[in-house]
Nucleic acid binder design. Sequence first.
DNA 1: GAGCTGTCTGTTATCTTATAACATATCTCT
DNA 2: AGAGATATGTTATAAGATAACAGACAGCTC
Lengths: 148, 148
Amino acid sequence: MTARPPPDTRAGPGLGPNDRAVLAVLADAKGPLGAYEVLDQVRHHGLKAPPQVYRALHRLIGLGLAHRIESLNAFVACAHGRHSDAVRADRAMFVICDRCGAAVELDATPAAAAAESAATAKGFRVGRVIVEMKGLCAGCTAEAPGPG
Amino acid sequence: MTARPPPDTRAGPGLGPNDRAVLAVLADAKGPLGAYEVLDQVRHHGLKAPPQVYRALHRLIGLGLAHRIESLNAFVACAHGRHSDAVRADRAMFVICDRCGAAVELDATPAAAAAESAATAKGFRVGRVIVEMKGLCAGCTAEAPGPG
DNA sequence: GAGCTGTCTGTTATCTTATAACATATCTCT
DNA sequence: AGAGATATGTTATAAGATAACAGACAGCTC
């Protein structure tokens, strides 16, 4: 196995046309999209079947250009375009508004550190850390009735 | 609506036969079970269809007797039998071994506090907090090859 | 006890999410 | 051209979840 030059994992290029179409749809979306919603939006690009979308999503996630929101079985474009030193792709955290469906990406570093600390204390070696919160965003909190 | 006496939300009673069957299966399981795996295990109790299992699961989760692991689309019995003052049911955290499939429940309070702090700083009102970690458990770390 | 109401239960059908498996194309290096 | 790797297209199916309707049963009121 000769060490091939890696096919440019930088943001824009290095992606196939399917990847770019899927990423564009995610980036345009107002909130998280299910894989089949993405599929609907990329049909005019010629994509027709779920595996095409899922493959693109898996690649984008691998490159840190998109995230999967586990509690929604849905996907979003990464808010940073691409993760750099400060924020690791596997240390993103989401707050999800139950009312308007918005998902905001925040830096999970402090929360992930606390979680990881508890896990390593038990001898666990931590890979990915998933942190997701459900509740009401600022706008919906203002509009919605509620305690205090 | 007259205020009925609530049907005893304590651990044991207050549950229907289906709930108890499902809870027993989860409690016996070595790891998280998918809803259809639970269904297979409760067929000899007469349960035949997915909605029966899902209904029981939703009730158990509502009572804090079981948890849903979002990243696995699977379910576990609560490690505490039932949550008391110290550990809120919606503040449980799981570490999931990618190798042996074990899921260990830990107190998410510190991690959840850090996460919630970041969210409330953005004006978000937090309901449920989901913290899940993927990696290798102590046993599998010992056996598996790896850095370090 | 007839009738109402609410909860739990059973059952069918369907919807959503995700992947396996296989075929085809494309690119690069030699 | 031929070999190997990567990306893509396509069909079928697995896996997860719920909608919608029907029946059973308890407690209550009149």
